[in-house]
Design a protein around this nucleic acid. Structure first.
Length: 806
RNA sequence: GCGGAUGUGGUGGAAUUGGUAGACACGCGUGCCUUAGGAGCACGUGCCUCCGGGCGUGAAGGUUCAAGUCCUUUCAUCCGCACCA
């Protein structure tokens, strides 16, 4: 009998698959389309890790499944090659980024082929190639034309190690997302994308997305919309007003002091001679303090009195103005009206500095004594007795009348800072002209090629600033001497539209044709395990803009998002090189298990959306299972069945119920249980084959091979051919099931006495209730437990359960 | 602090959504076969037990004929966000 040898079978089929065009997706109007992709990787020097393999196992199973379901499947692949990760790797190894990227891509490509991924390689893209970044730059110029790309001087996050500014989304807990260094603030003139223009649009679409809840919530929180009012407090003895933002204008009568953020420009103006030195000290201290320090001291509030007073427009009272760093300059107006009676933080501050507290809500305390800040207003002049909820509107209207306030909505989300002082990125396609200011490079002059440089180490200003020949150019508008922008774009810009480039990757004239975008988008399934906010928010933002430009058919680019967990090391901790607990998937394949076993095992470990734990023994179990599939198929082939034999009803029912279970499990992405039911199927077949093979077994075995196909495609392809088929497995329709054939003639009814199982009845289907209950009562064990007591009640669930209550 | 999730055998995990808890696999045990192997095959394996049965899904209550599943309270762990006025 032919033995199972993955090291022979797998390379053989991989060669066949890469040698023809079977996985190429063409626009084919006969079949419904299915567009699926993983998040494209940045080609690191370490090669693919278990996470990449896991992701592609998921994507490939789904791709193969939908392909055999009759869908026109697009499963593309590309490289997130521009950006910090790739550049840092190049610097570390002393290789030019272009060279290291090329090598790493070759390595990744080879490794992906070894998983057996059914990728359409004809659509391969690389964000660092001029053919690609030409269009990234084109998008930039379109954003610029629409006023969505602009420059401003501002205090920005700065990573002192990577020597570049970072977007808010790239600062994680006060540290650089790449190197973990504490970030600083630095004032620079930078380019931004105006994502805040789309805050509401992005927010509004979230509920309808078929995305994991936690990511939807994370995005909502990130956008952070809050509605309230902006109110002006005049400063006693000064011309200027302090504008505050509050979500609780109804509490304005309780505003007993005010606080300015240290960065607030009014601080210096309103400090009095007596307080000036203290205020200056405080301000310079807190600005110097790193964000980390400010965060870690979060509970201990500090501040100083400015010496000036503001007038509460509601009460007319003079209230002291303080400066304190618990008020953030970056949110709202950088100033607040403090209502200590109804805000925990303000209360803490008031208690510390002995400031007045005036309660303005007669709140009903909840049962555990916690004050609920809703109720009826008190101490609020003409608004006394109004419910807080209604008072919000009424007070804002009243303030509007007096022209001291208005309804206002704010967002936590800031504009997306996209310029980087780094080499390895798409040059920002802008020309600075003394006469015309910043001018977009015309489409006909794109791409603005990234020049080759000798020294690409970050220097604290743009690396390209040293390329004098490259910089000097002429203004596209006036033709006069002008200079190129020297910053490059954030790598996230490149990855914000790559899913669209896949639909038309070779197009020289456009970023993509609308025709193809209309056909393929939105993406049906996007699979990843990283980027809860940044990438997934940017992709949505760009897509919304493209929609407004009439370039894509839907606002939302990703219909269904699948978020997988990590595969942790055997000890339950994260795999990491430093701990030396990394499992190299290629080593597992080479150890003799093969890619089929690896894929199947990773999916069998548990639900894909949860973290799971590698188990070196577990893969042997899956390998054993694949061997059993192989062996029973070969045994069947060797047996050379001739006579028809008798049709076995139970075998037929087993076959159909397995098809049903596996099919619905794959649709639900419950791969672990799909594989478990395939194992059950095989286990049952091993028992049944002891009666000998019949002609009926052909369908039984072929079904097995087809169902195993998405998980173990190499083995399935080999077995399918061994079974005597000329056609390739990839084009064979997925097996179907018939519910009628699943149903057996008998059912098992569980008999309970007082809710405890006491007997099981094997009865004919469609048995009538009274008959079933009679049978149940006559069971020895049931009689025993009833032992003469009166039957109070009998519950009957047809063909399932009887519960006798005594 | 706020938000999201998760707690089931020695282990990873099932359970058709209120109806046989522990599928499937790992591990372990017994036997067969092979003089080899991290091989194969078969059977067993939640806990306790006086072998009648009893107890069991983080803990404690509740609803129900019936609860892993629903309600209330509570504990633990993991992951986001974090002074957002």
């Amino acid at each position: 009998m032919k033995r199972y040898s993955p090291s022979d079978v797998e390379p053989k089929w991989q060669k066949i698959w890469s040698g023809d065009s079977r996985y190429r997706a063409e626009k084919n109007t006969d079949k419904p389309k299915y567009y699926i992709s993983g998040m494209f990787p940045y080609p690191s020097g370490a090669g693919m890790h278990t996470g990449h393999f896991f992701e592609h196992s998921i994507v490939d199973v789904v791709a193969r499944f939908y392909r055999s379901q009759g869908f026109n499947v697009l499963y593309p692949m590309g490289w997130d090659a521009f950006g910090l990760p790739a550049e840092n790797y190049a610097i570390k190894t002393g290789t030019a980024p272009a060279d290291s990227t090329r090598q790493n891509i070759a390595n990744f490509t080879n490794q992906l082929q070894r998983v057996g991924a059914s990728i359409d390689w004809s659509r391969e893209i690389n964000t660092s190639s001029p053919e690609y970044y030409k269009w990234t730059q084109w998008v930039f110029t379109k954003f610029f034309e629409r006023g969505l790309a602009y420059q401003k001087e501002a205090n920005q996050w700065w990573c002192p190690i990577d020597k570049t500014v970072l977007a808010n989304e790239q600062v994680e807990g006060g540290k650089c997302w790449r190197c973990g260094t504490e970030v600083e603030k630095k004032s620079m003139k930078q380019w931004f994308f105006k994502i805040t223009d789309y805050a509401d649009a992005l927010l509004d679409e979230i509920p309808a997305l078929d995305w994991p809840n936690k990511i939807k919530v994370a995005q909502e929180n990130w956008i952070g919309k809050s509605q309230g009012a902006e109110i002006a407090f005049s400063v006693d003895g000064h011309d200027e007003d302090i504008k505050v933002f509050t979500t609780r204008p109804d509490t304005i009568f309780g505003a007993t002091f005010m606080i300015l953020a240290p960065e607030h420009p009014l601080v210096k103006k309103i400090a009095t001679d007596e307080t000036r030195s203290m205020v200056d000290d405080y301000v310079s201290n807190s600005i110097k303090k790193s964000e980390i320090e400010r965060m870690s001291e979060s509970k201990d509030k500090t501040g100083v009195f400015t010496g000036s007073y503001a007038i509460n427009p509601a009460t007319g009272d003079k209230v002291p103005v303080w400066v304190a760093d618990y008020v953030l300059w970056g949110y709202g107006t950088g100033a607040i009206m403090a209502v200590p009676a109804h805000d925990e933080r303000d209360l803490a501050f008031a208690e510390k500095y002995d400031l007045p507290v005036v309660s303005v809500i007669d709140s009903k305390k909840s049962k555990d004594g916690v004050i609920v800040n809703e109720g009826t207003l008190i101490n609020s002049g003409q608004f006394d007795g109004t419910e807080t909820f209604d008072a919000r509107e009424q007070i804002v209207a009243w303030l509007e009348q007096q022209k001291v306030g208005e309804a206002k909505t704010t967002y936590k989300m800031r504009d997306w800072l996209i310029s980087r002082q780094r080499y390895w990125g798409a040059p920002i396609p802008i020309i600075h002209c003394e006469k015309d200011g910043p001018v977009a490079v015309p489409e006909s002059d794109l791409p603005v090629l990234l020049p080759e440089v000798e020294d690409y180490e970050p220097k604290g200003q743009s690396v390209l600033a040293g390329e004098k020949d490259w910089i000097s150019t002429t203004c596209p508008k006036c033709g006069g001497a002008a200079e190129r922008e020297t910053d490059t774009m954030d790598g996230y810009a490149c990855s914000s539209w790559y899913l669209l480039r896949y639909v038309d990757p070779k197009n020289q004239d456009e970023a993509w044709s609308s025709d193809l975008a209309n056909y393929w988008t939105p993406i049906d399934m996007y699979v990843g395990g990283d980027h809860a906010v940044a990438h997934l928010l940017y992709v949505r933002f760009w897509s919304h803009v493209f929609y407004d430009m009439g370039l894509v058919p839907t606002k939302e680019p990703v219909k269904k998002l699948v978020y997988h967990g990590y595969i942790n090391a055997e000890d339950g901790t994260k795999m990491s090189k430093s701990k030396g607990n990394v499992v190299d998937p290629i080593e597992i394949i080479d150890a003799g298990y093969g890619a089929d076993a690896l894929r199947t095992f990773e999916l069998f470990l548990g639900p894909i959306n949860e973290n799971s734990q590698w188990n070196s023994r577990g893969i042997a179990g899956v390998y054993r299972f694949l061997n059993r599939v192989w062996n029973i198929t070969q045994e069947f082939i060797d047996a050379g069945v001739g006579d028809s034999g008798e049709e076995s009803v139970s075998l037929r029912s087993l076959q159909h119920s397995t098809v049903k279970k596996v099919t619905s499990d794959i649709y639900k992405l419950n791969f672990n249980t799909a594989i478990a039911s395939l194992m059950e199927y095989v286990n049952a077949l091993y028992k049944l084959k002891q009666d000998g093979f019949t002609e009926q077994w052909r369908g039984v075995i072929e079904t097995l091979v087809l169902l195993v196909g998405p998980f173990a495609p190499h083995m399935a392809a080999e077995l399918w051919r061994d079974l005597g088929h000329d056609d390739q497995l990839d084009f064979v329709a997925w097996p179907e099931w018939d519910d009628e054939l699943i149903a057996s003639e008998t059912v098992t009814i569980v008999v309970q006495v007082n809710g405890k199982v006491r007997a099981r009845l094997e009865v004919d289907k469609g048995i009538d209730e009274n008959e079933a209950i009679e049978l149940a009562k006559n069971e020895e064990n049931v009689k025993k437990f009833l032992s003469g007591s009166d039957i109070k009640k009998t519950i009957y669930v047809p063909e399932k359960l009887i519960n006798i209550v005594a």
